[in-house]
Simulated scan of single mutants.
Amino acid sequence: MYELDKPIYLYLLALVPVLVALYLYEVYWRRKKQREFGNAELVEKLAPERSVFKQALKWAVLLLAITCVIIAIVNPKIGTKVETVKREGIDIVFAMDVSKSMLAEDMAPSRLERSKQIVSQIINGLGSDRIGIVGYAGAAYPVLPITTDYGVAKMFLEGVNTDIVSSQGTAIGAAIDMAITFFDDPDSSKLIILLSDGEDHGEDSISAAERAKEKGIKIITVGLGTTKGGPIPMRRNGIIYSYKQDSEGNTVTTKLYPEALQALAQATGGGYISGQSTKAVTDYVKNTISSSKKTGFESRRVAEYDSQYQWFLAAALLLLILDFFLLERKTAWIKKLNLFNEKEQ
């Protein structure tokens, strides 16, 4: 495997055909001037030691040296070093509510966007912990399996929206059950961070929390929204055109139900915190993680890329030295071989 450190400099290779074209034009111009000067054979006799082949060879060597310098600037890297990396931490699964009620804007910019901001900031503060993401509304949806690649996790986090689960509702129980299946190491400390407004949470959520507790999993619940609540905006092309209404035409108001979320966390010996302050949530999670027992994850082999630019610089230097010693006159021993059946005049 290989990668290019600065691939944009590959555009400099376009100079090579330009220089070749300039050389060909220079050869054409020189021969034209020689024909204007006099008979070509007589002109050749005036410089019997001049070698057309040597002249072309010097140009080829120079162009090859320029090519090597450009490749050195690009800095190709090859994965030749392999080392074993061991990590210690805990396993964390984020269970994110993606029901339509999470579009309410009683928490700026919206409950869902605040939820994504909180998860992103928690990830930023992690060390060697493994993370996974579950989205849920009327059903649970696996967004990202357990991983240590935080970059990939953030990429998947950006794609979380209310359309990833078609059925509506707040199936917290199904989300917890799915999160439980993400934990593949029986010896690791396990934590579910559930972010929701707690609305329409379902009767099986406490039972699911008890199942999680039996497997040594704690749940931290993060309340999103306000107890006063707010309407659910309906957007078209990013513009609000209406608010969600019930069957009687009344605007639906969605509220935060902290009591349901508190009961859920207490069932596993975890805790509840309001999502009003992102920093308060991240600090709370950080303290929970720091007090949890860290376990070593299985070793994984990581390929590190070694820079190879030095070889191309060395080749360019050798070619330039060769170009310096190459003369444009014919080489005596090659001339004696008479490879092209040239006759002495």
Rank of each mutant, 00 (worst) to 15 (best):
Y25F: 15
P48L: 02
R31T: 13
L46A: 05
Y28P: 05
K32I: 03
E26Y: 10
E49N: 12
F53E: 08
L46N: 00
K32D: 01
E36H: 02
R31H: 10
E44Q: 09
R30E: 10
L42Y: 08
A47D: 05
L24F: 02
R35E: 00
K45D: 11
S51D: 06
R35A: 04
R50C: 09
A47Y: 05
E44R: 06
V43M: 12
R30V: 13
Y25H: 13
W29Y: 15
Y28Q: 14
A47C: 04
E36Q: 04
A40H: 06
W29V: 14
P48E: 03
Y25P: 10
G38K: 00
S51K: 00
W29E: 13
K45C: 05
E26H: 14
R35Q: 07
F53T: 13
E41G: 11
L24R: 02
L24A: 02
Y25I: 13
R30I: 10
V52W: 14
F53I: 15
A40K: 07
W29G: 09
R35I: 02
A47G: 05
R35K: 03
A56K: 09
A40G: 08
F37M: 15
K33M: 06
K33T: 06
A56T: 12
Y28A: 15
V43G: 05
G38M: 03
G38C: 04
F53L: 15
A56D: 08
R30F: 08
A47N: 09
F37K: 12
A56R: 13
R31G: 10
R31I: 12
E41T: 14
A56E: 10
Y28I: 13
E26C: 11
R50E: 08
F37I: 14
W29S: 15
R50F: 08
E26I: 12
R50P: 01
E44K: 07
W29F: 13
N39D: 14
F53P: 09
L46I: 00
P48C: 02
E41N: 10
V27R: 12
Q55G: 09
F37L: 15
A56W: 08
F53W: 07
F53M: 13
L42Q: 12
L46C: 01
Q34L: 07
R30A: 14
P48V: 05
W29H: 12
K32C: 01
Y25C: 14
K33C: 06
K45F: 09
V52N: 13
F53N: 07
F37N: 11
Q55F: 10
